[in-house]
Simulated scan of single mutants.
Amino acid sequence: MGQCVTKCKNPTSSLGSKSGDKEGGSKSHHKKGGHKEEQHAPCSKAIGELSNGTKALEVTMETPVISAMMGEPHRDMGLDGNGLSMLRIEELFYCYKDEHEDAILEEGMEMFCIDLCVDPAEFRVLVLAWKFQAATMCKFTRKEFTDGCKAIKADSLEGICSSFPVMLLDAKGEENFKDLYRFTFQFGLDADEGQRSLQRDIAIALWRLVFTQNSPAILEHWLDFLSENPSSIRGISRDTWNMFLNFTQAIGPDLSNYSEEEAWPSLFDTFVEWELERRKKEEEQMAKEEEGRCTDSECSPTTDRLETEGSRGSQTWGGH
């Protein structure tokens, strides 16, 4: 999920990269169990195109699963208080569920994103994972998927797609974004390895992702600082991650109101010193370039002023 940066160990990769190229939406899922083998095709069908311009995939499935995917009515589907069919949610989960584990894993997640017509690396997928309260990248447990669908009031692919605008709007709220921001740190950790801090490259990728809708002015300079100092910055702690949001809200773009006396992480002190020095060098370089463009005969302020004053003097004496 997201860019699958934790599981794939590659912040620029997409879901499923470990298993090589996929066959897109035409690949079928095969599940083996104690009974006869079931075959599930990708669960997507939409009229026309979604907002991102991606065409939906063809569907070869028969009811009741196809009705579960697209929200079509089907008999004997018990509805909850919000009118959601738990059977449709269950069938949607089984369409992408791993054949060995009771969860949607990397390959199923890739197919899920394809059928939703979303890029696994885009912000909408992170927001969906937040709404589902997913504990791990590239994975939805049965409970996370079921509770998530209930939370966004959707029991089909079509319902999930139509919920994206509302989810994005929710993510813009101050308190909701703070919750999403803190969720992103935990989401990026590798639970299997017991990680307590984010790898630097993963943190950079997640910072860019989580600030998609509202990027602070200082963000790119901060990420440049992290990228240019790999030896001294190996990981990002939870405290540093959380405090950076406060930093973007409290400190102005010119960094003039930053004080080392306040309780900022020491990494921020280093960053501010680095950034101010970078700006100083940039200004000096710009001044040298400006001087290089000006020659005595072309744009010397003194020469221009003398010539103008001399011209005025001639006109004055000539008038007498």
Rank of each mutant, 00 (worst) to 15 (best):
S51I: 11
D179C: 08
K131Q: 11
G16C: 01
A46Y: 09
E106D: 15
R208Y: 08
D296C: 13
D76K: 12
D239E: 08
H30K: 13
S314T: 13
V272S: 05
K178Y: 05
T63C: 07
T248P: 01
K31M: 08
E91N: 07
E273D: 11
E49V: 14
W207N: 10
F112P: 03
C95A: 15
K143W: 08
F123Q: 07
A129H: 04
A287M: 02
F225L: 04
F225H: 04
A46F: 12
R305I: 15
E193A: 15
S13V: 08
G20R: 13
S231R: 13
E49H: 10
S314Y: 13
T60L: 08
R182K: 11
S197A: 14
I47P: 07
G71V: 11
T302Y: 05
N242Y: 10
L169R: 15
S14A: 09
L267F: 00
E144V: 10
A191W: 10
T270K: 05
I114A: 03
D239Y: 00
E289T: 03
E122K: 07
L226A: 02
R124F: 01
R208S: 13
I66A: 10
H30F: 12
L84F: 03
C43E: 07
F271C: 00
F183C: 05
A287D: 06
P265A: 01
G25V: 09
A154T: 05
G310I: 11
A121R: 15
C299F: 01
E260D: 03
R196G: 02
E144D: 12
Q285W: 04
S19L: 11
S231H: 14
I114E: 09
C138G: 02
G16S: 06
P120K: 04
H221D: 14
D170R: 05
C117M: 07
W207M: 15
P120F: 01
L189S: 14
K18A: 06
A41Q: 13
E260K: 05
P165Q: 06
G319T: 14
E144K: 07
E284W: 03
K281H: 05
R208P: 03
T316I: 15
E273C: 07
K22S: 15
I251L: 04
E273H: 08
M109D: 05
E110A: 10
C4H: 12
Y258K: 00
R124W: 02
L219W: 06
L15M: 11
G313A: 14
N10P: 06
C149G: 02
D192W: 08
I104F: 02
H35I: 02
N214F: 15
M77Y: 13
